[in-house]
Each structure stands twice: as structure tokens, then as C-alpha cells.
């Protein structure tokens, strides 16, 4: 019942959009890709992935269709939409600004 904190939620959305920017994937594949790219640094439970996907779809950032997967079973594939692309660009810019600012702060020497 409890929801992950906003930062993680936002980050998960961002990661999913970024992953889907490369190619359309189904939920299982996204979860695999998430583990691959973020390694052990970001623990994303499989459970929170699906509500996040549904939310992104409702926002209109990704769309879905049913297609045969690699093992020839029907699976729901998600694709980034034009709206999602815009959102990703915007969030990337935000992210870059934020991380630049943070690393700038971190470089400050303690006196």
C-alpha cells in the first residue's frame, strides 16, 4: 500500500522513458534492462514497475501494443510517444542541470 518516495518514483519514470527511447520493450524486458543498466545501485522492485508503466501510459508518454515476444508468446510492448520524447528531453535537461549543480557543490573544498 505504501508508495515509494517521490524522488525514486520520478527517477524510475525517467529511467523507463530512457530505456524505451532506445527500442520498444515489454515489462519483463524493461525490468531486466533496469537491472542491467543500474546494477546494484538502484534497487527497483518488479512490483513497482507495472504501476509506473501504467501511469506513464495514462500520461500519454508511452503507448502499448500486444505483440509476440522473443519466445513467441503474446506480450505487451511499450513504445515511447512523441509526448514522451519531449518529456524525456525536458527531464534529461533538468537532470543534467541538477547533477551539474550537485557535482559543483561537491567539488567545493572544505576550508
Amino acid at each position: 500500500m505504501s508508495k515509494p518516495p517521490d524522488l525514486l518514483q520520478g527517477t524510475l519514470d525517467f529511467l523507463v522513458l530512457k530505456i524505451l527511447a532506445l527500442e520498444p520493450l515489454n515489462g519483463w524486458a524493461i525490468s531486466q534492462r533496469l537491472t542491467q543498466v543500474s546494477g546494484d545501485v538502484l534497487q527497483v522492485s518488479d512490483g513497482s514497475l507495472y504501476p509506473a508503466l501504467h501511469k506513464l501510459e495514462q500520461e500519454g508518454w508511452i503507448s502499448s501494443e500486444w505483440k509476440p515476444s522473443e519466445n513467441n508468446r503474446r506480450a505487451k510492448f511499450y513504445t515511447l510517444t512523441r509526448l514522451g520524447r519531449k518529456q524525456l528531453d525536458q527531464e534529461s535537461a533538468n537532470w543534467n542541470r541538477l547533477s551539474a549543480a550537485i557535482s559543483h557543490v561537491m567539488r567545493l573544498k572544505e576550508t
Binding site: 515489454n26 515489462g27 519483463w28 525490468s31 518488479d46 507495472y50 515476444s69 506480450a75 505487451k76
Partner: peptide
């Protein structure tokens, strides 16, 4: 179907 696909894969 979507969720059970995930569970089966896992």
C-alpha cells in the same frame, strides 16, 4: 496477462 507473463519469465 501482463503480470503473469512477468511472473512466468521470472
Amino acid at each position: 496477462e501482463e503480470l503473469s507473463y512477468h511472473i512466468e519469465q521470472k
